[in-house]
Amino acid sequence: MEQETESRDDELLVAGLRAGSERAFRGIVELYGSRIYTLVSGMISDRVEAEDVVQEVFFKVHRKIHLFEGKSAFYTWLYRIALNTATDHLKRRRHRETTSIEDLPGYDAPARAGRPDLGLDRHELRVRMAEAIAELPEIYRDIIVLREYEDLSYEEIATTLGCSKGTVESRLFRARARLKDKLSTYLR
């Protein structure tokens, strides 16, 4: 029922935005802005960078709404834009970045990581998680952020990414296996 209502809201807002309504655009940002921010933050820990990406996502929505054909749910189209925009951002960042995670201020080796007695800083965890996810191949990265940060069901993920539910399960398994290696110090 809640999904149906949401879907009707989406339809109205999309129709409004197509007609050039600023109010409809604001409605879409109100409805999805925080979710897209959370999704993007799964891969990008820097808040300013994440906000820039969110702005770029909604700029694309505003500019390309005429390309949305309405064959799938609006959120799946929006999430695909968000994933692609975040991926492009990561590629550009990698291109210009020379520092690694070990060069970050305050990094004092994995020995401290995951030791509650030494205090696991929330920000430190944010940085490590986002870095680990950002380093995954794109097909695994998309699955992880949609599942763990956007809390989509397997069915919704399959629809968003245009694959089968079985593919979602196996990619999720591989994505988590890779992350377990990268985050092993936090899992002891």
Binding site: F25, E30, E51, L125, M129, Y149
Partner: peptide, 19 residues
């Protein structure tokens, strides 16, 4: 980690204004 992510205050307004 997910619980520690808080969208910054004024995010929606800034996004709308910028776009």
């Amino acid at each position: 980690d997910r619980a520690s992510i808080e969208p910054p205050a004024g995010l929606h307004e800034r996004v709308c204004a910028g776009v």
